[in-house]
Design a binder for these strands. Sequence first.
DNA 1: GTGTATATGTACCGATCTGTACATCTTGTC
DNA 2: GACAAGATGTACAGATCGGTACATATACAC
Lengths: 187, 187
Amino acid sequence: MRPNKRDELVRKALDVFYRNGFHATGMDMLVVETGVSKTSMYKHFRTKEDLILAALRLRDENFRNFLYRRIEEIADTPVGRLLALYDVLAEWFSKKEFRGCMFIKASAEYQEKEHPIHVQSAEHKRLLLEHFTKIARAAGAREPETLANQLMLLKEGAIVTAVMGLGNDPAQKAKLAAEVLIAQGVG
Amino acid sequence: MRPNKRDELVRKALDVFYRNGFHATGMDMLVVETGVSKTSMYKHFRTKEDLILAALRLRDENFRNFLYRRIEEIADTPVGRLLALYDVLAEWFSKKEFRGCMFIKASAEYQEKEHPIHVQSAEHKRLLLEHFTKIARAAGAREPETLANQLMLLKEGAIVTAVMGLGNDPAQKAKLAAEVLIAQGVG
DNA sequence: GTGTATATGTACCGATCTGTACATCTTGTC
DNA sequence: GACAAGATGTACAGATCGGTACATATACAC
């Protein structure tokens, strides 16, 4: 029961859940995909729900790391970073493995507001909102919370629209809208 | 096999799918909820997928009727109607049965872009986009498609945010943002 | 009444679901 | 080598999945 074995299971499970959905992915499938035995799987994770939660935790870590890092690489002013969000979104959308936001999908399959999976999905979004609120404040926004909230609306909308295959380049349209909102809300 | 019997089944199934999700709702549960026998159910709908598609068609009809009608009741100028979208959203969010957008959830559970359920969900969004593009054009927008697209991004974002229980009054924040975008994009 | 066509209820199919019992294999210690 | 402890594989339990076979009930012809 080396710890990295567990991490590897989570990593692989994350992939399968992301591609295939949560209810649609059975433990049998995960056992086949990971090559581990069912007993071992249940040694590491008491239930399927535990495994999903672990996968979501990893996804949260990976995604926020990716997003924050790329934003910092692209721009070094607060306003620039608010806008860079949409450049990174465009990068993400164009990846061949892009399948939408894992947390939107998780909360869609586990709808009860008190459900641990729903709660954890919301927490991911809350962390993002917090992060962009800080940047909006650094940018000198009159109402950083409101501006960050609105930029997040554009982000979530762009993701959903990209998944549905609607509109041309939703990330770019979101960026154009963000430019207007930022110009209006800063200074 | 009266036609209204079938309609009633679709109506009830729509409720259950909306509350409970698609994979998580079994045909057995639907048979119990509707009171009809399994044989009759499968006389009306060849497969579960057919039933889901019928439910989505009804949802599309109901939702767009509700949305368009309320918008026309609230405002009678194009710009007013673009903004009224967010008032209706706020109404929807405050309903106790609000559980997010059925089409976002459907496309989250049936991810393959060619899957009939995914295709039909995207079609709903496409119809909305078309509708608001027309209104944006009537409002005198310089780029009606772009403006409608952006207003839709705010709408989808607001829905997702409301489902997650994040931010205060996402519909109102979306409306404020919409006002800025419209002011900037019209005339 | 009899015959026929359709609607329904029940009981079931094989597959798959999450989760477990239990026997075997591997590993470290002496 | 012997032995204990933990990891693993297999086989299965009990429930539920989507879907169907089949026997009965009901309706309308005549």
